[in-house]
Write a protein that binds this DNA or RNA. Structure first.
Lengths: 106, 106
DNA sequence: TGGCTATTTGGCCATTCTGCCAAAGAGCAA
DNA sequence: TTGCTCTTTGGCAGAATGGCCAAATAGCCA
């Protein structure tokens, strides 16, 4: 694998990494329904505000969400809706894995 | 977020995590072209055999690839082709992020 | 059986990630 | 300005990840 290819996959991995956390997946799902401020998202997640803020920062740096300041709160929104399609595929992966486990047992 | 929801997102995150690594993304791309044994993949990746084996193990546990032993060697294959669609979306995310950076500079 | 190849597993270490607290902005209103 | 709220940032401790080497396992063949 040459350096150029390696860089390419590293960039792609950065985006995947941003979504590779339960809380961040939840945030994406919530934002798919419409924009929300950090305070609302914090209440939904049930973690420290700073934790949620950092998760949102990760998603923003990956380019998955966008932020907009209004008054003294910040609203986040989903910038790339196609990530939602992944979720359907993930469900498929999970189901396939579950079937496989069942087959292994029987 | 209740316990059931949390578990749901944790499972989904496991699948995403499995793909959140440059080497594993490369392996998935390669396996999309057809099955391959660990030895071939090791040569392509250019890392220690044990490292590649562990990466494949992660993908297998996530349900993304399947393994089949034939003779002396183990052949891996892509079990859930829909993960390939993600890549196109990731490219979109990367391009959107690049455009945003350009806009921020100008 | 013994030797050879292919693969997996265990262990170790360096690096990265996570989540909390505390403190530092930033904006609004009195 | 002062006080209040919302958000981000810095720092720290514990957990998880990644890569290599070494050792164990599995299958083939002589």
């Amino acid at each position: 694998m040459d350096a150029r290819t390696r860089t390419h996959y590293r960039h792609r991995a950065l985006v995947m990494k941003a979504l590779a956390h339960p809380t961040r997946l939840f945030l994406v799902d919530r934002l798919a329904e419409g924009e929300a401020c950090v305070c609302d998202l914090t209440a939904l997640v049930g973690a420290d505000v700073s934790t949620v803020s950092k998760h949102l920062s990760v998603l923003k740096n990956a380019g998955v969400v966008a932020d907009q300041k209004r008054g003294n709160q910040v609203f986040y929104s989903l910038r790339v809706p196609c990530v939602l399609n992944w979720c359907a595929c993930v469900e498929g992966v999970l189901e396939a894995a579950a079937r496989e486990r069942l087959r292994a047992v029987s």
